[in-house]
Design a protein around this nucleic acid. Structure first.
Lengths: 130, 130
DNA sequence: CTAGCTGCAAAACATTTGCATTTCG
DNA sequence: CGAAATGCAAATGTTTTGCAGCTAG
């Protein structure tokens, strides 16, 4: 479309990303891509991911204590990070969404984006697997 | 107290931090400290800030697009970042606070900490300076 | 054919660390 | 005096970039 070439490397990176639901970082994407084709340089992964990010295909997350992690852009949602394992759960809360917009407005600002992340530990709890 | 020495450098860094309400990053703290005494290495600023952070005297913020910024620990509040200027405003919303705890609980987690940041642009608005 | 990509290695940042020296208590 | 702290420079970890060669369209 924009003079973008569908190279072998990009195909592989797209495949890896679309099959990863665990918010991998660049290194992990590179590792997974390499498993498919050994000849992928990490610089290419960085460049491709940045490219996707700039085109709003990927979202970048910088969780406290981790290197930048990515996920394909989807409907608006937030993250709960299990600080024991680094695993990420997603949730949504439209009421909170609305509130933020209002808070900004009251301060004389127009909300462009917002970040909401919960850092938590699992409740050792038994049967209440929800 | 903990075998901590009150060195000349630390005194200066404390002074700079206590007089800064703009969430400066390490480089800026170093710059301000240097203005008071030329002989402060940036490594010392890093070490001192890390030290304060570990002792819960300073809070570290990693706003999108900025290097780590700090502020002295105070009552719980959140940040609205003016993405035009990098300036930070603070606000509080206990209702949202309570909500997050509840969200985590419903997902089977105990909330340890959470991050809420609004990225916004000022409304060019006139007289409603609030 | 050639603009756009790639790999590699070097550069760029931000932050940390080893070490010899200085300083607080 | 001796543990702790400092400055400097080198080492890290992560991400970016210059460049010569490689490919998709």
């Amino acid at each position: 479309m924009l003079g973008l070439k569908m190279t072998e490397q990009r195909k592989i990176i797209v495949k890896v990303l679309s099959e990863s639901s665990d918010h991998p970082d660049v290194e992990l994407v590179h590792k997974r891509a390499s498993k498919i084709d050994k000849r992928i340089g990490i610089a290419t992964v960085y460049r491709t991911i940045k490219l996707f990010e700039d085109n709003n295909l990927l979202e970048k997350h910088e969780f406290k204590g981790y290197s930048s992690r990515y996920e394909t852009v989807r409907e608006n949602h937030h993250h709960l990070i299990d600080i024991r394992s680094g695993r990420v759960k997603e949730f949504r809360n439209t009421l909170v969404d609305a509130m933020q917009k209002q808070v900004a407005k009251e301060m004389g600002f127009q909300l462009v984006d917002y970040r909401l992340e919960l850092y938590a530990i699992p409740i050792k709890n038994k049967r209440s697997k929800k």
